[in-house]
Design a protein around this nucleic acid. Structure first.
Lengths: 346, 346
DNA sequence: GTGAAAGCGCTAACAG
DNA sequence: CTGTTAGCGCTTTCAC
């Protein structure tokens, strides 16, 4: 079972010196006889010596040079982009990334966080699943005084750094855009799960109604289980069955947006003439789609990089009690054919 | 700087017992006085005790319950899907995933592998960047007898498990499909980097020519730097400037394929009439594109899951010298509008 | 120039 | 039922 790895002691025995001398020689510290120095380095190479960093260092230095990243899943480009950019920034500072996917499972999320703490991570970047359900895990982290940065999603009750998207403003802008075209019967398609992001986007959508003294019909609020294989098929089906049928759809994320377009086209519904379509998005899929789709662009790389930088700041200034900082990354409205009724040429 | 974490000794001091008793109590082992048991567990909770797994366990048990996953980047859905599924499988066995992105940088890749070994990972799943350049890193892993599974890409010289896509057959099928339509002047757009995957796909493409006693003109072989922001623009530009202009394009991956379609459409080139287009793909983007694109579908989840299972087998049977196993995951040709000249209705 | 001792957090093995 | 000892791999401190 053992890997019978080569240790300092193995080399020491072989070289006929103490482990200490080997340690010095390998680290290139002064005070080692040139010949012995050479002999030891040669031996280290030929024996295939690899220093054990997870042990010695972590114990004594109280730092593992490892950070945990906890994301719901990677199927949505926004999360894989965030992860990639966190890795890019942190690795340039010598930190390694321990990845956990929670797969929208709140129990799993709790275990993941615990496992990270047990592994002595120096910090955690996390997109929490729920506003309430994720709270206990957050409290454990904070009790350990482990640096924590929320990314994409947050738990406002926790006083800690967060890097977020302006979900509210983005959704408001998107919904206003539809209303500016006279499209006011707008359905909302989002996940059943009650997360920070879901709340913000839904509120932005509702705000646009409120601004015009309107409010959406209850039947237009479509909540789907995003874990199922084709939630958008059910969503579109329910939208088309509404007593007062919508003439526009606001989708919570890329997957739902793209899926909805496919399903609408499959059913022979004309976009945007029969049904306008907009969606919250971080991907380029919106522009390459059959009918290019209007959406708000999220700067994924920026989200990931900023989160990593926030965490680095916290990990370096362990004692300094900085005020929690919340950075909102702006979205950009990208208007395309799917929502432009009287101006197909864009 | 220190995290002043709570240790077994802290609890022991507080409870007035030895660390050993605390250890037993917390692990629920028999042989602890009920009252003391209760006192200790209460203390552990109130003091916020988190066991240090990276130390004790890793040292003694010679296992870190951590695996390293090394991928070129996550921008391509195939890699984020592979990663997600590796995490899914390994975490259900208690293993955690240490992620490294090599960003097509061969030096970085070497450092990443070294860092993983220094952190005592129990195994590595890796998509190596190059056939030659990645060899030294592979040798270090094997010298450590660290279980290694290649995924998506391989280094055939290394005798170890691999889970691959049938790149050769897929490319052959794609190219044949074009030729069956009478499209024989086919350009190849791929990366300059010489990887296993690149070689296989190019060979599949070439084989289709060979089968018909043809060979592609040198000017049709377009190698692009995939790191640049829009390699496909240059690629299309070069294709359109060919002395003998191609009537079809074979693209190496999704990004290049989608990009090429956009660029062709931007230039007013008709797909598939002026130019047919096919690409190697793992994503759904191909079917939602403006002009749906013919491609070969790669089963990303299958790749990730199988790689994880292969690694688990190796990690569990450390002593048993199993023969290296290579699993080829089949691709599936998906025919769409972008390559169907005389049959636009599909 | 070199080495011995001690300790990081935890647990297996052995004593009491 | 509970405690002591020793050791995992390495480095810091202090002797020689």
């Amino acid at each position: 079972m053992k890997r019978n790895k080569v240790t300092l002691n193995d080399i020491a025995r072989e070289a006929g010196v103490s482990a200490m001398t080997v340690s010095r020689a390998i680290r290139g510290l002064p005070g080692v006889n040139k010949d012995i120095q050479k002999k030891i380095t040669d031996l280290a190479v030929s024996m295939g010596y690899i220093p054990n960093r997870s042990l010695g260092d972590t114990t004594r230095e109280q730092t593992s040079m490892t950070v945990g990243v906890v994301l719901p899943y990677l199927g949505n480009t926004i999360f894989s982009t965030i992860l990639e950019n966190i890795e890019l920034v942190l690795s340039s500072y010598g930190y390694r990334t321990l990845l956990c996917c929670t797969f929208n499972n709140i129990i799993r999320e709790f275990h993941d966080i615990s496992a990270l703490l047990e592994r002595q991570v120096d910090g955690i970047i996390w997109a929490p699943l729920e506003l309430n359900g994720s709270l206990s895990a957050a409290q454990i982290i904070q009790k350990q005084h482990c640096p924590l940065v929320f990314v994409d999603r947050t738990i406002p009750d926790c006083k800690t750094d967060a890097v977020l998207v302006d979900d509210f403003v983005g959704s408001l802008t998107l919904t206003r855009h539809l209303m500016d075209q006279g499209i006011t019967k707008i359905a909302y398609v989002g996940p059943v799960q009650h997360s920070y992001v879901e709340e913000e986007r839904r509120n932005g959508y509702l705000k646009a109604f409120e601004e015009r003294g309107l409010s959406p019909r209850a039947e237009w609020m479509i909540k789907v289980k995003t874990e199922t294989s084709h939630p958008e098929i059910e969503a579109i089906s329910r939208i088309l069955q509404c007593q007062d049928r919508p003439d526009g759809i606001f989708c919570f994320n890329d997957t739902l947006t793209i899926g909805s377009e496919m399903e609408l086209l499959n059913r022979g519904i004309k976009i945007p003439d029969d049904m306008a379509l907009v969606g919250f998005s971080g991907t380029s899929e919106m522009q390459i789609a059959r009918i290019p789709i209007t959406g708000v662009f999220q700067d994924g790389p920026q989200l990931g990089k900023t989160a990593a930088e926030f965490l680095l700041k916290r990990m370096i200034n362990r004692k300094i009690r900085l005020q929690p900082e919340v950075r909102i990354i702006k979205t950009r409205l990208e208007t395309r054919q799917s929502s432009l009724r009287n101006n197909a040429a864009l």
